[in-house]
């Protein structure tokens, strides 16, 4: 099976984030970066599939030169080769443009299965996978919890629906799947693998070489402003003994918070 795994490089989850002076993005200079959390689970799912059915896993990343760190990590985890679309222009681009770039980078590769993370840690649009499937003309499922190969070029996929329902379906290949976080135990890249990642094939292409149309590179949305949630003091201490406090809490959750 020929598998592609799309990964995004984002700020480390414990990085100290500060809003840039422009107000529409964050300070990114010197910021530690890492593979987005959901994408890690997608890489692990891809590697397990490869180990089960044989084949290859390629990793695809769109980003600046510093993206090579995440490319090498995926290779060190066990991916066989990498495609890195090098561009500094699309850091804040919208799902439409990113999905167009991803699709164009692999349209002639003939992948059977494309895995993405459910959503990215930074922008979290939860839309790239769906659009990518549309551009590539592939089947698609989101919030994927498990993937198993079955006969005749099909896969069995479990994924979440609303109200905590889990649906199991069969999809024809080729397909794009958006992988949920927490579905597997993600392996660590070995230090030996890290030191030898450079020996695996890494194809680097520029955005210009992909020859996308001006329309494909025109975002459909624009970030006007980013900021931290305003801190408010709305905590309320519930008095009384445990039983009475629990009754009051349930009542508030039902009538005020409306979550029960």
């Amino acid at each position: 099976m020929k598998i592609l795994c799309c990964v995004k490089q984002v700020p480390e989850k414990d990085a100290r984030i500060r809003v840039a002076d422009s107000g529409d993005w964050i300070h990114s200079e010197g910021l530690a970066v890492a593979i987005s959390e959901c994408d890690r689970y997608a890489v692990e799912a891809a590697l397990r599939l490869k180990e089960a059915v044989d084949g290859e896993v390629a990793v695809l990343l769109v980003g600046g030169e510093q993206g090579s760190k995440s490319v090498k990590e995926a290779l060190a985890m066990g991916c066989d080769r990498a495609i890195h679309v090098i561009t500094d222009e699309l850091t804040r681009s919208d799902p439409f443009v990113i999905s167009k770039v991803l699709a164009k980078a692999v349209e002639d590769e003939g992948f059977d299965l494309v895995l993405t993370g459910q959503q990215s840690d930074d922008l979290g649009y939860n839309a790239v996978g769906q659009m990518l499937a549309q551009h590539l003309g592939m089947s698609h499922a989101q919030i994927v919890l498990s993937v198993d190969p079955v006969e005749d070029g099909r896969i069995r996929v479990s994924h979440e629906l609303d109200n905590a329902l889990i649906e199991t379906i069969e999809l024809s290949l080729p397909a794009v799947l958006g992988v949920q976080s927490g579905i597997n135990d993600v392996r660590y890249a070995s230090l030996k693998g890290i030191m030898q990642a450079n020996s695996k094939p890494q194809k680097k292409v520029t955005l210009e070489e992909l020859d996308l149309s001006a329309e494909d590179l025109t975002p459909k949305l624009r970030i006007e402003k980013v900021g931290f949630p305003v801190r408010t003091s709305q905590a309320e201490m519930i008095e009384g003994d445990a039983a009475a406090a629990a009754r009051t809490l349930v009542d508030k959750l039902r009538t005020e918070a409306k979550v029960l």
Binding site: E12, G30, L31, A32, A34, S68, K69, K72, E73, A76, Y188, A189, L191, I194, M195, A197, N198
Partner: peptide, 14 residues
């Protein structure tokens, strides 16, 4: 951070 190679950062982060 910018003085480190990809490999050095990955060893640290892993």
């Amino acid at each position: 951070e910018d003085e480190l190679s990809d490999e050095e950062k990955l060893v640290r982060d892993t």
